[in-house]
């Protein structure tokens, strides 16, 4: 078993390499055909031609694209994403600075969507064909049809304005904890800063809910479908015939098997969440990677666009790797 997992892991890792190279190429290509001169964006409208030329040289923009790409590749291997021309900071620092904010948001959104979606999906599967089932299905389809741009706006108004929730940024600056993990919710608790924790929780609630509601709609439907399928399968029927108690049957077998597709799709959905939050992070002034990418595209900050897209794609590839391994682990029937 251990050996086969290692083999499997190795093969999957090998597959990752051409994918990552391809990503690098596409991203580089796209960022170079972007219109607009980054040098003018840096120097401002009143720059002199000598000045422009100097900066072009400094940035290596005068070399041909192939040389630029090869140089860039070498840097990326050394985990050096270059310097942001416009924000005047190392892209790597910028990414690591913004990463915890996005991760915290995504994790809280995941947890929220599981809290909402999983029980509803199970209930619907168990009460298949009743009004409960219908209700959950309706909620599910409403959830996945909800446009983030609209949902975020409505939540911001209802909670931010009428209920007085703090909006924007991750925490009140006066309550900000020292940076340990970069996750506000954890850092405040480590300090025993209960007010900070509550403030951070209030601030993360709205953007997380905006991300979580569509996700929980999807989850609801998936859990329901896969539960039903498993409940109807020979596997469970056999187990029932063997007189396995109902609880064990439902939770150990049915639920565990139903979770397999759920885990996969949650992995795939990671991309949707990370990018869906470009919108959410913009609406809620959340200082994460999504907003960084949006700002970078607006400012034509090549280095940041490249760095962020590659970074996210790497994480995405990694997440799918983990999902595949989990898959392998959860379901003993699969021997890839």
């Amino acid at each position: 078993m251990a050996r086969s997992i290692l083999n499997y892991l190795f093969m999957r890792l090998l597959q990752v390499i051409p994918t990552v190279l391809g990503v690098l190429f596409i991203v580089f290509f796209l960022s170079r055909i972007l219109p607009g001169n980054p040098v003018i964006a840096i120097l401002g409208p009143k720059a002199t031609p000598e000045n422009i030329e100097k900066v072009v040289k400094e940035l290596g923009l005068d070399k041909d694209y192939f040389t630029q790409f090869i140089e860039y590749l070498g840097d990326v291997i050394r985990l050096d994403f270059g310097r942001s021309y416009i924000m005047n900071v190392e892209v790597r620092d910028l990414l690591f600075d913004r990463l915890p904010a996005s991760f915290e948001l995504v994790i809280v959104a995941y947890i929220l969507s599981i809290i909402i979606g999983l029980p509803l999906g199970i209930i619907a599967a168990l009460k298949r064909g009743t009004w409960v089932d219908d209700l959950v299905r309706i909620l599910g389809v409403i959830g996945i049809s909800m446009p983030t741009i609209w949902l975020g706006m409505v939540l911001q108004i209802v909670f931010g304005i009428y209920l007085g929730f703090p909006v924007g940024e991750r925490i009140d600056p006066l309550l900000a904890p020292k940076k340990v993990t970069g996750f506000m919710l954890i850092d405040t608790l480590l300090e025993g800063n209960i007010y900070g924790f509550l403030d951070a929780l209030k601030r993360i609630a709205l953007p997380a809910l905006t991300l979580a509601l569509p996700l929980s709609g999807l989850l609801m439907r998936l859990v329901r479908t896969s539960m039903v399928e498993v409940l109807l399968s020979d596997y469970i029927r056999t187990a029932k015939m063997k007189r396995v108690p109902r609880d064990v049957l439902l939770y150990r077998h049915a639920l565990k098997n139903a979770l397999i597709p759920v885990v996969t799709v949650m992995g795939l959905y990671f991309a949707v969440v990370v990018t869906g939050d470009i919108i959410v992070e913009t609406i809620f002034s959340w200082p994460g990677i999504g907003r960084l990418i949006y700002e970078a595209v607006l400012l034509r900050d090549y280095m940041v666009i490249q760095g962020a897209v590659i970074f996210i794609s790497l994480i995405y590839v990694l997440v799918n790797l983990v999902v595949d391994v989990l898959y392998f682990y959860i379901d003993p029937r699969i021997k890839a």
Binding site: A271, V274, T275, I278, I293, Y294, V309, I312, Y316
Partner: peptide, 12 residues
Amino acid sequence: LISIPGFMLAIA
């Protein structure tokens, strides 16, 4: 193509 998150690629 699929390993670059869709909306991000669309933005780019």
